[in-house]
Structure formats: structure tokens, C-alpha cells
């Protein structure tokens, strides 16, 4: 089973938010709702030694996804490609998954009254294309692919960096699959490892 995930090289991210806009356009995400959101971290340090970086956030495709574990109806599930998805037709809107998500990266669709989140754009990836955020990244800092396949874009970029430069969001035992590359010269990782 593939282990598809997104890798973001924060050393290159300019915070242009084109990934956020591309996601909204591709998936019809309404105003005020997010599947992908870019945050500024910093400035860190004191003038003149200050650093700042940008942190794009979305569903981290956790290996032990708490949202899937707590969902009372199976609306949050893992598909045959190992991707955590939400079946709108089955979601009862209890928001239990939103409480259980360690990162708060699930969104509430106020029109349909169901929970939504990043899907890794299966409508594109099944056609051999990249997710919208990856394809439209202006600084080409986003990579998508199977982390277990050394020839995937995601694995190749991770292989180019030292372990000390590779980070994940604070792991509470859920093992997030999204990886962030951040070198100390650009910024200090503050999101837990």
C-alpha cells in the first residue's frame, strides 16, 4: 500500500499562499474555510539576527489517524491508497474528529454541515497529475509522492537533506506523514518533532 504524503521545503517557501488559493479553486472551498492554510512563524531572535519562515498546514495524513479512530460512523476513513478521506454522505456532523485532530486542520463546511479536509486531490493524482497545491506552488517547494518509494519526488527531496533538517508537527503518537524541511539557517523549528 502506498504511503502518499506531501513534503514541503520551508527553506524555499515564500509565503505567497498560491497553494492555499489553488486548493480553494480546485476543491471549491468556501470563503472562511480552509483545507490548506499558510502561517508565518516568527520573527525569531532579536534584530539584527532575526529569522522567519512560512508554514503551510493541511491534513498531515497521520499513520495512526485519531480522526479515523474516533469517527462514530466511519465517515472518516482510509481509502485503498492509504489516504485519510471523509465521506460526506455518512458524516453526522458530531465534530468529534475535529476535537481529536492534533493539529486542528479539519474544516467545517457550513453549507453541507459536514467536516472536510485536504484530500490530496485524488481527482488529479489518479490521473497521474500532482495535487493542486503542489502543481501551483510558485517556488516549487512542495512535493508529493510515496514516502516508501525512493524514486518518488517526496522521497528524493527528503534524501537530499540531513535528518536534523527534516521535521514533522508535534507527534502525539499519531505519526504525521507530512514532512517539513527547515534548515537552522532559515529558521528554528517550533512545532515539535
Amino acid at each position: 500500500m502506498p504511503h502518499n504524503a506531501i513534503v514541503v521545503n520551508l527553506n524555499l517557501c515564500t509565503g505567497c499562499m498560491s497553494c492555499e488559493i489553488a486548493c480553494k479553486q480546485e476543491n471549491g472551498v468556501s470563503l472562511g474555510q480552509y483545507w490548506n492554510k499558510v502561517f508565518r512563524v516568527g520573527p525569531q531572535g532579536t534584530f539584527p539576527d532575526i529569522k522567519q519562515y512560512w508554514l503551510p498546514t493541511m491534513c498531515q495524513q497521520c499513520e495512526n489517524a485519531p480522526c479515523v479512530e474516533v469517527c462514530p460512523t466511519g465517515a472518516s476513513y482510509r481509502d485503498e491508497n492509504n489516504v485519510v478521506l471523509i465521506n460526506h454522505e455518512v458524516c453526522i456532523g458530531c465534530k468529534y474528529c475535529m476535537m481529536a485532530c492534533p493539529y486542528g486542520v479539519r474544516s467545517w463546511n457550513t453549507d453541507e454541515k459536514v467536516v472536510e479536509k485536504c484530500t490530496l486531490c485524488p481527482q488529479l493524482t489518479t490521473l497521474g497529475k500532482k495535487p493542486a497545491c503542489v502543481h501551483n506552488c510558485a517556488s516549487q517547494c512542495r512535493y508529493y509522492g510515496d514516502l516508501d518509494d525512493p524514486d518518488s519526488d517526496a522521497s528524493k527531496v527528503l534524501a537530499r537533506f540531513n535528518e536534523s533538517d527534516i521535521h514533522v508537527l508535534k507527534d502525539e503518537g499519531n505519526h504525521p506523514s507530512t514532512h517539513y524541511i527547515l534548515s537552522e539557517k532559515i529558521g528554528t523549528w517550533e512545532m515539535g518533532d
Binding site: 469517527c71 462514530p72 466511519g74 453526522i92 458530531c94 468529534y96 459536514v114
Partner: peptide, 21 residues
Amino acid sequence: LHLSHPERMMGALAHPTMGIF
């Protein structure tokens, strides 16, 4: 009353989990 779609509640019967079920 906490649910947005109580009409789909019976779906929980087909998906036993620790918690709400």
C-alpha cells in the same frame, strides 16, 4: 441535538468504535 445530521445516526451501528458508539 449536538449532531448536524441526526438522520444519519444509525450509521454508527455499523461502525462500532470506542466513544460515541
